[in-house]
């Protein structure tokens, strides 16, 4: 007994002694690749700069410009709408598909693979493929996905569903398979209907999967960039009286990108400020949602 205890403590001691060796590379990579650029990014959002190495501190002007920019506000609401609509649709459809595929039907494994496959294609490629598909259809009506904001919006939603349902489905399948058999059996014996079983037994038990899927699809929706760039690139624009534009299908990330690279050297700081606001938004939303859904999970 005493021997085991001393063994344990010696293992602990050597683990402690060598921990830095194993943690070090990861921590330094994390610092170099994330922490440092992150703080530099925050600093730059208070600066006017052409090159990141040559920045002049100007205070909160960039934030003022960012928050009063009509195109940024538009892209915020557009992004929020896209994220919410895609979150609802993706999760309902993914759960439904997962539920069907966990029933004992023929070829379930084949279907799972097929549904998951769209997820393996990159966003840019998807964007172009879908723009061809949509335009192939819309051309018959002498229009294009680039001509109507609503086409661009629903086009993106369809694309996102097609891409992400398979991924979320896998998570839901794992959750559904973990629902204890005895609970389902007990429900059956007690005479619960299919719907009662679904809402009272299955869904509370897959709440962890729902948490993670909602979290993923919400942040995916907010951070969306490449699909947005490739599908519509922000088109169509509303040309305002002064010649400035509101890019009606431009999401937040693309708005930041365009501000940084195409709006001239003077607006790089503004783009940086937008990026910080964007980060706070995504992080805040994600955490709030996580906290909310966690509370509803069943502790097993």
């Amino acid at each position: 007994m005493a021997k085991t205890a001393s063994n344990d403590s010696s293992i602990k001691r050597s683990t402690r002694r060598w921990a830095w060796l194993f943690m070090g590379p990861v921590i330094s990579a994390f610092c170099i690749g994330f922490v440092w650029p992150f703080f530099q990014g925050i600093y730059l959002s208070f600066c006017k700069f052409r090159l990141t190495s040559d920045a002049t501190f100007i205070g909160v002007d960039n934030y003022q410009a960012a928050l009063t920019d009509a195109s940024f506000q538009h892209s915020f609401w557009y992004t929020a709408l896209t994220a919410v609509v895609s979150l609802v649709l993706i999760n309902i459809l993914a759960f439904t598909v997962a539920y069907v595929l966990t029933q004992k039907i023929k070829g379930a494994n084949l279907f799972r693979t097929v549904f998951f496959m769209p997820n393996l294609i990159g966003g840019i490629v998807l964007g172009y493929i879908w723009s061809m598909i949509f335009d192939g259809i819309l051309a018959a009506y002498s229009t294009s996905i680039l001509l109507e904001t609503s086409y661009g919006f629903w086009g993106l939603i369809i694309l996102l569903c097609w891409q992400q349902i398979g991924y979320m489905m896998i998570i839901y399948i794992a959750g559904l398979q973990a629902v204890p058999e005895d609970m389902l059996e007990a429900a059956k014996i007690d005479g619960a209907s299919k719907w009662q079983t679904l809402f009272r037994v299955i869904i509370p038990n897959v709440m962890p999967s729902i948490t993670i899927c909602m979290f993923l699809s919400l942040t995916n929706g907010f951070k969306l960039f490449d699909q947005n760039l490739a599908l519509t690139g922000g088109l169509p624009y509303i040309i305002q009286a002064d010649g400035s534009t509101i890019n009606t299908t431009e999401m937040l990330a693309l708005n930041i990108y365009n501000t940084f690279y195409t709006a001239g050297a003077g607006s790089r700081g503004v783009a940086q400020a937008k990026a910080v606001v964007f980060f706070l938004l995504v992080a805040g939303l994600g955490l709030a949602q996580l906290a909310y859904t966690r509370r509803r999970e069943v502790q097993q």
């Binding site: 690749g33 994330f34 440092w36 650029p37 992150f38 530099q40 990014g41 730059l44 990141t52 840019i124 172009y128 951070k223 960039f225 490449d226 760039l229 490739a230 690139g233 990330a253 930041i256 990108y257 940084f260 690279y261 195409t262 940086q272 990026a275 910080v276 964007f278 980060f279």
Partner: peptide, 24 residues
Amino acid sequence: NVSRRAFVGTAGLLATTLAACSGG
């Protein structure tokens, strides 16, 4: 001509928005 297609190779979202360390 600045092409959306041509942006493919360059645009890491985080690199653009948060990192500020490189333009790709």
